[in-house]
Design a protein around this nucleic acid. Structure first.
Ligand SMILES: [Mn+2]
Ligand SMILES: [Mn+2]
Ligand SMILES: [Zn+2]
Ligand SMILES: [Zn+2]
Lengths: 142, 142
DNA sequence: TCAATAGTTTAGAATTATTATAATGTAGAT
DNA sequence: ATCTACATTATAATAATTCTAAACTATTGA
């Protein structure tokens, strides 16, 4: 989704009513330079604290899932105890910082194309994604 | 963990008391030919239905986490709505069947070694795992 | 313009997964 | 056999998510 633009049109295009709440969420999610990785709680905090806008938690859940269904967001499974979402909806690889619990996108060029030799009969491959878990490299530690 | 063997010794070795419940769980988890992927609910069902053994849900949670901490089990994040565990505790790749929600191990030989060109300063790589999502390949479908 | 309508937001209740509590039970040591 | 630390259990508590039903709003078209 392009930045600094008419989210009303974008929402209409996919058949979502451009309500105040949805437009606000678009601003938070897509008015930025880089891919944004977040949890529902992150998003609620940003809207209520940084943007000083009252929004119901249920609406954030509803809207995030509406966006997901329409292809505006992608859910990422990294940590079974937390649900992450990603404004980059293409299949791509991630670094996951186990210290900060932060997700970082991996460029195409950072990892060679992955060749899968095994076939599962009757099944087609939908996506191939790599997760690289990293953590601080203090030799002094432990 | 070897199969058909003395789980009592194994448990003692890592400092877990070999209780009735833990031995039962070892039998379910490790008396099998292949890697076992399961959810807490799968495990409770197997113990109570197939093995006809009463066990408290809290004990299954406690014991799974005790095993995880001792390196007998590994948690796998695939689907943020469900927690999967794996009796194969080494870093390895998976196929995930989106139709059946089944996890399948990938052999070393099935995927070439993955070369990560990007470095994150001050961070070391803990693991590199690939998830291949597959689904039924019916041309007739949709 | 302005109701009619369908879709949306909301507060709060309900549900589900997981963890905590505290009483009871048991393994391992003496 | 007794003791003690640890484990199991039923149940309560918590946390994340979804449901419900009433109030609200964007859109349509008279
Ligand atoms: Mn979801
Ligand atoms: Mn866990
Ligand atoms: Zn991403
Ligand atoms: Zn596995």
């Amino acid at each position: 989704m392009p930045k600094n633009c008419n989210f009303i049109e974008k929402l209409r295009e996919v058949g979502l009513r451009p309500t105040k709440q949805r437009i606000k969420m678009c601003e938070v999610l897509y008015n930025r330079e880089k891919t944004f990785h977040f949890t529902i709680n992150d998003l609620v905090k940003i809207i209520s604290e940084k943007m000083n806008e009252k929004i119901s938690l249920a609406t954030v859940y509803n809207t995030v899932h509406a966006f997901e269904k329409k292809g505006y967001l992608k859910e990422i499974s990294i940590d079974s105890h937390k649900s992450y979402f990603d404004t980059n909806t293409s299949a791509h690889h991630h670094f996951f910082d186990e210290d900060t619990h932060e997700l970082i996108d991996c460029d195409e060029s950072d990892i060679d194309k992955i060749n899968i030799r095994k076939k599962i009969t009757g099944k087609k491959i939908n996506s191939v994604e790599v997760l690289v878990r990293v953590a601080s490299d203090n030799q002094t530690q432990k």
